[in-house]
């Protein structure tokens, strides 16, 4: 009896070992992987370079060129004669190029006041997951805009007067694969303001976010808070913008509703005349397309 028990014991042990051998190697690898875990950069905090009108923390990858078309019709409350705003339109065409994975430069042209804009964006901090976490992503962007619309009665308007500088610090966090939020303190300097009651240096705080609905669809929203007692001669409102975002391959398409007609920071932050409550809502869309034009980016991968 004892011998039989012992024999059974041997069989069980052998069987156990045979069964276990398949996964022990894998378990060993998993343990080793966990012990050597390295932080990984969090990607895709936002799908595009703009939440709606405001820049996101993202910039073009190295060697990638982003072509952006932003388009706004007229106000929805324009009435049937103007076909509820669809008769009018303003547009901004933009290019954004990634020099490195952290540094990007961009240029744009808006039809509103025939405005040119140029900027750079630099990624200071990259959010990471893993054991040693960096909790958020941080980018700094600085640029200028210059409007070239001719005013025959204002001959004194030279290039310097027409220029505005924008500097912003963009702090963003991807909370989950579905939710990303960002907070943007912003400083604008208008070289020329309408009256002495208006400040040349204007400060604002912008908050924006994106929530994913499905794998390729999401909703974006942004709210802009202009600090009080800065713009007094013009009736301005805080800009609130919403977008429904659809991603297909290399395109990102956004359907936009906003009370801001402009698409550059100086026009949106401190020159938004429309108000949601009055129906001053501009309908429009943003389309972005990525082109990979540098061969440098491709060299890093060998197959």
């Amino acid at each position: 009896m004892k011998q039989r028990l012992l024999f059974l014991f041997v069989v069980i042990i052998t069987a156990n070992r045979l069964q276990a051998q398949d996964s022990t190697l894998l378990n060993m690898l998993s343990d080793s992987m966990q012990a050597n875990e390295k932080p990984m950069p969090v990607r895709g905090t936002f799908k595009g370079l703009y939440i709606v009108n405001m820049k996101t923390v993202e910039s073009s990858a190295r060697g990638a060129l982003n072509f952006l078309i932003m388009h706004r019709f007229g106000r929805l409350n324009d009435g049937a004669y103007n076909f509820f705003g669809l008769d009018n339109a303003s547009i901004r065409l933009g290019l954004d190029y990634g020099i490195t994975d952290r540094l990007a430069i961009g240029i744009g042209r808006s039809s509103l006041e025939k405005t040119f804009d140029a900027y750079f964006k630099y990624r200071l901090l990259w959010q990471t997951d893993g054991s040693e976490r960096v909790p958020l992503s941080l980018s700094v962007s600085s640029g200028l805009t210059n409007y070239t619309l001719k005013f025959p009665d204002k001959t004194y308007l030279n290039a310097r007067y027409r220029t505005t500088y924008v500097t912003q610090l963009i702090a963003a966090r991807k909370f989950s694969s579905a939710l990303s939020l960002q907070l943007v303190p912003m400083w604008l300097h208008y070289n020329l303001v309408p009256t002495v009651n208006d400040k040349n240096d204007v400060f604002a705080l912008n908050a924006g976010g994106r929530m994913k609905l499905t794998k390729r669809m999401s909703i974006s929203a942004e709210y802009n808070y202009l600090l009080p007692d800065q713009v007094n001669s013009i009736d301005v409102h805080n800009a609130i913008s919403l977008a429904w975002e659809i991603e297909t391959g290399g395109h990102v398409f956004q359907l936009v509703f906003s009370n801001a007609q402009g698409m550059t920071e100086p026009q949106v932050i401190a020159r938004t005349a429309g108000e949601w409550g009055d129906g001053d809502v501009y309908f429009g869309f943003n389309i972005s397309r990525v082109f990979n034009i540098s061969h440098k980016a491709k060299k890093s991968v060998t197959y």
Partner: peptide, 24 residues
């Protein structure tokens, strides 16, 4: 017997956008 284990985020693509789509 043999075993392999890898992190999918460790794959690098020629295009950043492909990498994002692959992971997300």
């Amino acid at each position: 017997n043999l075993a392999f284990s890898l992190l999918l985020k460790g794959f690098t693509f020629t295009k950043e956008l492909m990498q994002e789509h692959f992971n997300e």
